[in-house]
Design a protein around this nucleic acid. Sequence first.
DNA 1: ACATGCACCTGGGAGC
DNA 2: TGCTCCCAGGTGCATG
Length: 264
Amino acid sequence: MPELPEVEHIVRYLRPRLATRTITGAAPSFPGLRGRTIEAVRRRAKLVLVDLDDGSTLAIHLKLTGKLWVRAEPGPKARLALRLDDGQALVLEDARRLGWVRRLDALGLDRLLAPLGPEPLEPGFDLAALRARLARRRGRLKPLLLDPTFVAGVGNIYADEVLFAARLHPRRTSASLAPADVARLHRALVSTLRRALDARTDEVPDQERVGAGGRGAAERISGLKVFQRAGRPCPRCKTTITRSVVQGRGTYTCPACQRMPAGA
DNA sequence: ACATGCACCTGGGAGC
DNA sequence: TGCTCCCAGGTGCATG
């Protein structure tokens, strides 16, 4: 479960279930955790950060298919289970096994987080901040949005949704943007992620709604306008949404709303 | 500096 | 049913 809104939602689900709990064991064994008390659960970019009472932090990256649960029984798919003092367990499942968990001291955590770009939903990420970052980079918009050092938390789904909301073609370059384009991009980034996060108000994270069928993300995340909707009408103008490949990633656009200006 | 392609892994769906 | 192929929400690195 990966992008900013989903990871944030998982963190909100975990926080009351993990805070003040003491870890009583780990399977498979994980050095140094027994007896540690969990002080805080937070998010940076797509990382879940679990702060422990000795100043160390468990950093968890779910990558493409990682899921985190708190429940009584780890179950057969568990990659890692941390036993808690209330009888529950923090369980990591990860079908593709690309995710990871690291225990880091303060310095190691700093080194992990230092390269990351700004949090798009934090107040500091205003129009001027985006303008300044765009001015320092060349490149096409979609790869920029997907670059965790450019902006934190945006992945393949929301990159496409943001660019659609901003009416910008994913291959537009940063240098080709007029001030009004940058303003629309900023508004789209904030509002798209905000709305996605606010839509997740139910107690149960998306990851629990399995069995929805269909292809991955699009079926489980409601409100998507273009992502994985090739062949269907644009919700704005009814033109057929198309799929292309940008940077090796499936990319969905409305060819009418997101035109490539001549010379861009 | 940027684009491209590949690496890490596995599973599910579509089509034959 | 059982193939085979394509696709998948992320990053990091190596190469042009």
